[in-house]
């Protein structure tokens, strides 16, 4: 499976990862439309910053994922093939139990269309996840394990 590893010594806090994450999860995948005219999806990666230190963090796709066990509806599952922890928006009811148990604060409410959560899906349509591909400083690395 792939993992995304943050490298805080290279992160400059530019938040391009957040912007490209939003674009990738938008309907049109067009940066202007995603930000100016469409329903804007929630970001699935977040830059944490304090003073000179910053890094981007998204779902760790945990081996023993607390969100999968805790999910009330069965929407959250771990893909046995890819190892990705994925949320099925059709089955998610927006109870926020995954948010309650995620040690990384990596799940967000996404209520624009209906109550559900949004989280990193490792960009299944891309060879390299958008946040990694668009980091100007290689502060996010994709690692195959």
């Amino acid at each position: 499976m792939i993992r995304i590893v943050p490298r805080e010594e290279y992160c400059i806090g530019c938040r391009l990862c957040e912007i490209h994450c939003i674009v990738q999860h938008s309907r049109s995948k067009n940066i202007i439309k995603a930000f100016k005219s469409e329903r804007r999806p929630v970001k699935r990666v977040e830059v944490e910053e304090e003073g000179h230190v910053s890094f981007a963090l998204q779902c760790r796709h945990c081996e023993e994922a607390p969100c999968v066990t805790a999910c009330l509806s069965g929407a959250m599952s771990k893909d046995p093939e890819t190892g990705a922890v994925v949320n099925d928006p059709e089955r998610c009811v927006g109870c926020w139990t995954c948010i309650l148990v995620c040690p990384f604060g990596a799940v967000r409410r996404d209520e624009a269309e209906r109550k559900a959560v949004g989280k990193c899906d490792l960009c299944p349509d891309l060879e390299v996840p958008a946040c990694v591909a668009n980091c100007p400083n290689e502060a996010l690395l994709m690692v195959e394990e």
Partner: peptide
């Protein structure tokens, strides 16, 4: 409040290890 506020060693251990 997040991992940025934790000491670097703790933060890196948590991020590396994942929830388990």
């Amino acid at each position: 409040f997040g991992h940025i506020h934790l000491p670097r060693s703790v933060r890196q251990e948590r991020i590396k290890e994942t929830a388990a």
